[in-house]
Write a protein that binds this DNA or RNA. Structure first.
Lengths: 193, 193
DNA sequence: TGTACATCAGTGAACGCGCGTTCACTGATGTAC
DNA sequence: TGTACATCAGTGAACGCGCGTTCACTGATGTAC
């Protein structure tokens, strides 16, 4: 009864490794050791370390997309608040996958403005859709484009979490308070005046 | 005529190394090789690699503080705009030192809110002074504390630069435009309404 | 002025480590006839 | 139903690399008397 294929088990072990020790301590050898397997067995499932890292990051990005998609389609403003909260939750409750999703080198990352405008990024597109809805409804101002606003949100959330991860807050509680206040304020700053 | 002591030359070489290759490729051996010196010679000047890294980051933080201090004391609002521009310039024209200042692990980093409120961070204190002046003059609203506002600015600027460094912008020009627009907007959002 | 000695920057070989990856292999499982 | 063969997950030893750091040293420079 192989509930999980070896490939999936490798990714899970890699995530665990990532959790303690971070990227720098993630090696083919440690992952294999955690699984009670020879390092070379990994090469049966991934061409090389880069491919494994890539799978890891894809996996985590999918998880993030899934969390975003799970948000109920209430009012667009509520959706935006909720998306900020989910980003925070993702960063706090799964620092591993958060790190894999956003901190591993991502060769295929979408670029602003072209890729974004062309809706090539699934997560940012999702966010932009709700921003557009908010603008359409009249609850958001229209002087800025959805991609501009989405990218602003993105930068702010990333910056806040980066400071937290760099140990710039006394504790998680202080961080949570600050994060929620700042992001709420940022959303508010785009409301129709 | 030793224009530069060996210690200073080591730090300069380390900065150069940091420039190409980043932190991960910064090793005692490569630094020494760049100087045409034996790796062990470095240990005459630094107890170990950590101490060298620490000196590197202190050095870069001082450079950043110096750049902030050089801003003329015009109106507080102009000062804040200028500080954002200098942060951008620092990130773009000296990515090396920027990386050393903000991306190297900083064991002594000040924490929000305690250390900040107590004015333990020289750069944030400088920024908070101008925010206070703006509030006193009446050009900034008073519903938020200077430390809250300063930390918000800080997170936003860091987040923007992090996205740029992660290759999320088509080019430096697009980034510069976006950065300046977003930060100006953020400053504006704290003006008295 | 000359000698003895301490200081100190830098040398060069070596140690032990963890890393990604190579190579030739074993042994079980599935499939074709 | 039995045999021959391909497939495929995993093994185990080894290679070559760059790393931080140890150790005992050399040789020049400064200082005390």
């Amino acid at each position: 009864m192989p509930a999980l294929g070896t490939k999936a088990r490798i990714l899970r072990a890699a995530n665990r490794r990532l959790q303690k020790g971070g990227i720098s301590r993630l090696s083919m050898r440690t992952i294999a050791a955690d699984l009670g397997i020879t390092p070379m067995a990994l090469y049966r499932h991934f061409r090389d370390k880069d491919e494994l890292l890539d799978a890891l990051s894809q996996d985590a990005l999918n998880e993030w997309l899934r969390r975003l998609q799970e948000i109920g389609s209430e009012s667009p403003l509520k959706w935006l608040h909720e998306s900020f909260e989910r980003f925070l939750a993702f960063a706090l409750d799964s620092p591993t996958r958060f790190e894999a999703a956003f901190l591993l080198p991502a060769p295929k990352a979408r670029r602003f403005p072209d890729d974004i405008t062309l809706r090539r990024s699934p997560t940012l597109t999702l966010m932009m859709n709700h921003i557009e809805r908010a603008q359409f409804e009249g609850s958001f101002c229209r002087d800025e484009s959805p991609e501009y606003i989405a990218m602003t949100f993105w930068a702010l959330a990333q910056g806040l979490v980066a400071l937290f991860r760099a140990g710039r807050f006394t504790g998680a509680t202080e961080f949570r308070d600050f994060y929620l206040r700042v992001t709420a304020r940022c959303i508010a700053s785009f409301r129709r005046s």
